[in-house]
Simulated scan of single mutants.
Amino acid sequence: MPHELAVGDVYLSPLVPVFSIALLGAWGTTALLNRLRLSRYIVFPSTTFIALMVLYIVLIDIFWIQI
Protein backbone atom coordinates (compact mmCIF):
# COMPACT_ATOMS: atom_id res chain seq x y z
CA MET A 1 0.00 0.00 0.00
CA PRO A 2 1.47 3.41 -0.93
CA HIS A 3 2.48 5.71 1.88
CA GLU A 4 3.97 9.15 2.34
CA LEU A 5 7.69 9.78 2.12
CA ALA A 6 9.14 11.59 5.12
CA VAL A 7 11.91 14.11 4.44
CA GLY A 8 12.68 15.68 7.78
CA ASP A 9 9.36 17.00 9.06
CA VAL A 10 7.82 17.27 5.59
CA TYR A 11 5.62 14.50 4.21
CA LEU A 12 5.64 14.06 0.43
CA SER A 13 3.37 12.11 -1.82
CA PRO A 14 5.01 9.13 -3.57
CA LEU A 15 4.06 10.82 -6.83
CA VAL A 16 6.62 13.62 -6.28
CA PRO A 17 9.79 11.54 -6.88
CA VAL A 18 8.10 9.55 -9.67
CA PHE A 19 7.06 12.79 -11.39
CA SER A 20 10.58 14.23 -10.95
CA ILE A 21 12.26 11.16 -12.44
CA ALA A 22 9.75 11.10 -15.31
CA LEU A 23 10.38 14.79 -15.98
CA LEU A 24 14.14 14.25 -16.12
CA GLY A 25 13.66 11.23 -18.38
CA ALA A 26 11.40 13.15 -20.75
CA TRP A 27 13.89 16.04 -20.88
CA GLY A 28 16.71 13.63 -21.60
CA THR A 29 14.75 11.85 -24.32
CA THR A 30 13.77 15.17 -25.88
CA ALA A 31 17.40 16.33 -25.83
CA LEU A 32 18.46 13.06 -27.46
CA LEU A 33 15.78 13.42 -30.14
CA ASN A 34 16.93 17.00 -30.79
CA ARG A 35 20.58 15.94 -30.99
CA LEU A 36 19.79 13.14 -33.43
CA ARG A 37 17.57 15.54 -35.40
CA LEU A 38 14.61 13.18 -35.12
CA SER A 39 12.42 15.83 -33.51
CA ARG A 40 11.77 17.45 -36.88
CA TYR A 41 9.48 14.52 -37.70
CA ILE A 42 7.28 15.21 -34.65
CA VAL A 43 4.21 17.30 -35.44
CA PHE A 44 3.20 18.33 -31.89
CA PRO A 45 6.34 18.56 -29.71
CA SER A 46 4.55 19.66 -26.52
CA THR A 47 2.07 16.78 -26.75
CA THR A 48 4.96 14.40 -27.40
CA PHE A 49 6.75 15.67 -24.28
CA ILE A 50 3.64 15.04 -22.16
CA ALA A 51 3.22 11.60 -23.75
CA LEU A 52 6.84 10.75 -22.90
CA MET A 53 6.27 11.84 -19.30
CA VAL A 54 3.16 9.68 -19.03
CA LEU A 55 5.05 6.76 -20.55
CA TYR A 56 7.88 7.13 -18.02
CA ILE A 57 5.40 7.42 -15.13
CA VAL A 58 3.64 4.22 -16.23
CA LEU A 59 6.94 2.36 -16.72
CA ILE A 60 8.21 3.46 -13.30
CA ASP A 61 4.93 2.34 -11.77
CA ILE A 62 5.07 -1.07 -13.45
CA PHE A 63 8.76 -1.95 -13.06
CA TRP A 64 10.13 0.03 -10.11
CA ILE A 65 7.31 0.49 -7.61
CA GLN A 66 6.21 -2.98 -6.61
CA ILE A 67 3.13 -3.16 -4.43
Score class of each variant (00 low, 15 high):
residue 42 I to C: 12
residue 25 G to S: 14
residue 57 I to C: 13
residue 20 S to I: 07
residue 22 A to M: 04
residue 62 I to P: 00
residue 44 F to H: 12
residue 22 A to R: 00
residue 51 A to F: 06
residue 8 G to D: 09
residue 58 V to R: 05
residue 61 D to V: 03
residue 9 D to K: 05
residue 16 V to Y: 03
residue 21 I to H: 05
residue 18 V to T: 10
residue 61 D to W: 12
residue 55 L to S: 09
residue 26 A to V: 01
residue 27 W to P: 00
residue 22 A to Q: 03
residue 36 L to R: 08
residue 6 A to Y: 03
residue 5 L to P: 04
residue 3 H to I: 01
residue 53 M to E: 04
residue 58 V to D: 02
residue 25 G to Y: 05
residue 50 I to A: 13
residue 48 T to E: 11
residue 52 L to Q: 01
residue 29 T to K: 13
residue 18 V to C: 09
residue 22 A to W: 03
residue 64 W to N: 09
residue 58 V to W: 08
residue 26 A to F: 01
residue 63 F to H: 13
residue 54 V to Y: 11
residue 10 V to I: 13
residue 38 L to N: 12
residue 16 V to Q: 00
residue 21 I to T: 10
residue 27 W to N: 10
residue 66 Q to R: 10
residue 17 P to Y: 09
residue 7 V to Y: 06
residue 14 P to Q: 03
residue 53 M to P: 00
residue 46 S to C: 09
residue 30 T to A: 12
residue 60 I to F: 12
residue 59 L to N: 03
residue 38 L to T: 08
residue 14 P to R: 02
residue 19 F to V: 15
residue 7 V to H: 00
residue 35 R to D: 07
residue 33 L to R: 03
residue 14 P to T: 07
residue 40 R to W: 10
residue 64 W to Q: 12
residue 2 P to I: 01
residue 25 G to L: 06
residue 59 L to Q: 02
residue 43 V to K: 02
residue 53 M to Y: 06
residue 14 P to A: 08
residue 8 G to L: 04
residue 40 R to K: 08
residue 62 I to K: 09
residue 38 L to A: 14
residue 59 L to F: 08
residue 15 L to I: 14
residue 67 I to K: 08
residue 60 I to C: 03
residue 34 N to E: 15
residue 41 Y to M: 06
residue 37 R to H: 11
residue 29 T to F: 14
residue 7 V to S: 07
residue 64 W to C: 10
residue 16 V to C: 02
residue 28 G to K: 04
residue 39 S to I: 10
residue 1 M to T: 15
residue 1 M to D: 14
residue 48 T to Q: 13
residue 40 R to L: 09
residue 50 I to L: 10
residue 52 L to S: 01
residue 23 L to R: 07
residue 1 M to Q: 14
residue 42 I to T: 12
residue 57 I to N: 00
residue 56 Y to I: 00
residue 45 P to F: 06
residue 52 L to N: 02
residue 22 A to P: 01
residue 61 D to C: 12
residue 52 L to M: 10
residue 39 S to R: 07
residue 24 L to D: 00
residue 14 P to G: 06
residue 7 V to E: 02
residue 32 L to S: 10
residue 44 F to I: 05
residue 38 L to H: 05
residue 47 T to R: 01
residue 8 G to C: 05
residue 18 V to L: 11
residue 2 P to N: 13
residue 18 V to M: 08
residue 64 W to P: 07
residue 37 R to A: 15
residue 35 R to S: 10
residue 16 V to I: 05
residue 54 V to F: 13
residue 9 D to L: 00
residue 1 M to S: 15
residue 34 N to L: 10
residue 30 T to R: 09
residue 26 A to H: 02
residue 45 P to R: 11
residue 55 L to V: 00
residue 7 V to G: 04
residue 64 W to Y: 15
